[in-house]
Every structure is written in C-alpha cells, then in structure tokens.
Amino acid sequence: MESITLYFREGPSDKVYQASIKPKDGGFMVHFAYGRRGATLSTGSKTQQPVEYQIAKGIYDKLIKEKTAKGYCPAETTAPLQHTDKIRSGILPQLLNPVESHELEKLIHDPACWMQEKKDGRRLLIHKQGDTVTGINRLGLTVALPPSLIEEASACAGDFLMDGEAIGDTLHAFDLLFIDDDDIRGRRCGERYLHLMNLLGSFQHPHIELVPSQFTTAQKQCCYHELKQRHAEGVVFKHSDAPYISGRPSAGGTQLKYKFYETASFIVAKANDKRSVSLILFENAKARPAGNVTIPPNHDVPSPGAVVECRYLYAFKESGSIYQPVYLGPRDDIRSAECTTAQLKYKAEVMQAAA
C-alpha cells in the first residue's frame, strides 16, 4: 500500500517521519514512526481499528500535509538539488496561513495585533556571516543575491539573518532571526522588529527597505484602505508577542495573511497555440485540469512540468478552472507537491466574501 518517508533538518535538528497505509482484517490502518535520523523510531497508529480505505487515505493525506507544512520534505528533496548550486541552508522561513474576510475587523481592532503590507515579491532571507553573504529562499535553499544586496549587507559591522520579500533588487525586510551569534527567533515579534530597526539604522542600505508596521486601530484602518485602493497584494497580521516559528502551522497561527486578490501556484501541463499554456493541480494525488493562461510577451513560455504563479478572480467548483487568470511568472521556490486544489477559492466563496 502507500507509504512515505519525510525528513526535517534545521540547525541541530535532524528528524525523520514515516507514514503508511496497511491492510488489516478487511480494512486499513494508518501507521506512523518518528524520531532522530539513525536512531530507533517511536511508532504508533492514527487508527485504533481497521477503517475503510477512503477514511484511511484521508487521515494519511492530512498527516502528510501537516508535516510538510512544518518543513518536512520527501527523501529525494533533502539532498542538494542536481544541476544547480542551491544547497539546503538549515534555515526555513515562517509561512503564514490565510485569514478570512469576516475575521478582519477583529484583527484590525485588536491592540496586540500589528499589521504590515504583504509585498508582492519572492520570499528571501539574507544571511551575513563574516565576509560571506548568502540568500535563502522559502524552501530553505541557498540562492544567488543581486550584487547591490551583497554589497550593502557586507557594509554591516555585525552578522545577521534577516527575513523579507524581494522585489527586483530591493529587499523589503520585515523580521530578524539572528543578531551575531544570538538566535532571537523565540523572542517577541515586537522585540525582533525593534532589533531590525536598530540594525538597519547602523549602516547604509538603499536596496533594503524596512516594511512599516501599523499598531493602532486608526493606523491599521487607514493603511488597509490605502493598500486596497492602490491594488496592493494584501496585508499581514502579527501578534506582538509571537515568536518566529519555521514552517506553516496546520491551521491558524499568531501570524496571518489576507490577500486582496487570489493567487495560486500551478503546474504547466502543455503549451498551447498563441502563447498559452494548460494548467493542472493535484487533488488526492490525481492531476486535475485548472484551465489555461496566456503568457505575456515579456515572459518566456514555461516548459511542461514547470511551476508557475497566476492571479485569478475565482475558480469554478465544477471544472476547477480559474476565471480571468493573469500570468505572474515562474516559481522555482515552490514544490510541485504544493500545487493542489486546496489553494483555490471558488466562485461562491469569493462572492460571499465580497457581499
């Protein structure tokens, strides 16, 4: 039957997690094992007695989704990628769950909840250690940095690990994980932000911009409406006491995001005529069509199998196709396994939120 082995490596942590579906007494059991790599694993079962296959499959899929959201990767992705200079950095960024529109009012009025603009770029961490400056993407892989960012980071007297969103050659910085040898990920969000402000005040950095935070209800309301009017991507809400936790929570969390429009990552199935490609998504390990998107003249037509990002108005529940798609570009920092129908917002949901 089905089985998978997942790995997680960050700093001193080097863990393994195994899950499987096995037949028993005419039904199926979901088993798991976990522990340090190379050590004896603790074992258990997610089912107390045999269940129908569809029930077991649902438990199994949910288990894998929860673990991959926390940064666990299949065995083949734990080694350095072939044909590239990207290697695993041992650092994974914190990823946020979306918040629904009916929850916005509560977050805006919560004095312990800060708000920032959600920048429309690519996740990028900058790690400075001595004379070495390294970029890290959302998969925890090292990536090349623009010369301007390397030069400016090198001008800082101390070492740091900074998190932000890259747009062109500019990093929009919103969090700080390390100062010299001090790991501050477990400290309050407000304290880390203050350290980030002080760090950026210590050297010249025209290509590193601090993302402003709004603290009061009035500030958040004003900023929210201004961002929506200029068609920004969205906003991020952070509890002032929240630590920095790598990976994505299985649900909710102390740091949340709200987008003003829908985006999703898709797999290119094939190239069509007139600079168009067909898109697919996975649903319970099966490929489902998700419509077509036209590739603008300023982008290369992606090859089949590539992961791409698209903006859309909503998806149709019956066909799974997206309505009014806009091609945003390739995503080499998104795994194919993340391209699932769970990303989609369907027409009825979008219409209800707008009402």
Rank of each mutant, 00 (worst) to 15 (best):
M162E: 00
P330Q: 14
K24I: 06
P304R: 01
L95Q: 03
I245C: 04
I91K: 14
M162R: 06
G27N: 12
I280E: 05
H231T: 03
L227I: 01
Q221Y: 02
R36Y: 02
K22I: 05
T84H: 10
E338A: 13
I87Q: 13
Y34L: 07
I87F: 11
E100L: 12
S101R: 15
D120Y: 07
S213W: 03
K220N: 01
G291L: 11
Y60K: 03
S213N: 07
D175E: 10
D85W: 02
Y261M: 09
R275K: 14
M197D: 10
L145G: 12
F282W: 11
Q18G: 06
I295N: 10
A218H: 13
V301T: 15
H31D: 05
I126Q: 02
I179F: 01
N284F: 06
E2M: 14
L149P: 05
Q221K: 11
S250Q: 10
Q219Y: 01
E76A: 06
K57Y: 05
Y258C: 01
E338K: 07
K317P: 00
E105G: 03
F8M: 08
D110F: 06
A337T: 00
I21C: 03
T216Q: 04
R88M: 01
L210F: 09
D110Q: 07
E233Q: 14
G135T: 12
E226Y: 04
L199S: 10
T216I: 08
Y323A: 01
K270M: 08
Y314G: 04
Y34D: 05
F160G: 03
E165F: 05
G247T: 13
L96K: 02
M115P: 01
F266Q: 00
Q255C: 14
Q94E: 10
L281C: 02
V16N: 00
I322N: 04
A315N: 02
T294F: 15
G35Q: 00
Y53K: 11
Q255M: 13
Q204L: 10
A287D: 05
W114K: 05
K259I: 14
P23G: 04
K86Q: 14
K274D: 10
V16K: 12
I126P: 12
A353G: 03
D181I: 15
Y17L: 04
T263E: 13
A342D: 09
L81G: 08
G140V: 00
S154C: 06
H83F: 15
Q116N: 03
S101E: 13
I245E: 04
F8Q: 01
Q204H: 12
L81M: 09
V51R: 03
H172P: 09
H299N: 14
R122N: 15
P249S: 00
T84D: 08
S336D: 10
P50L: 13
Q129W: 11
T340Q: 04
N298K: 15
L227V: 02
C73G: 03
G320I: 00
R37Y: 13
F215E: 08
A157G: 00
I334K: 13
I21D: 01
L161M: 11
S240N: 14
A348E: 03
D333T: 07
A264R: 09
P74Y: 03
T254E: 14
L95M: 07
P206G: 00
F260K: 09
Q352I: 09
D131T: 11
P330M: 11
I208N: 04
E100T: 04
A315I: 08
L92P: 09
I55N: 06
Y327S: 01
S265Y: 09
Y258V: 09
H299R: 11
Q94L: 09
L63A: 12
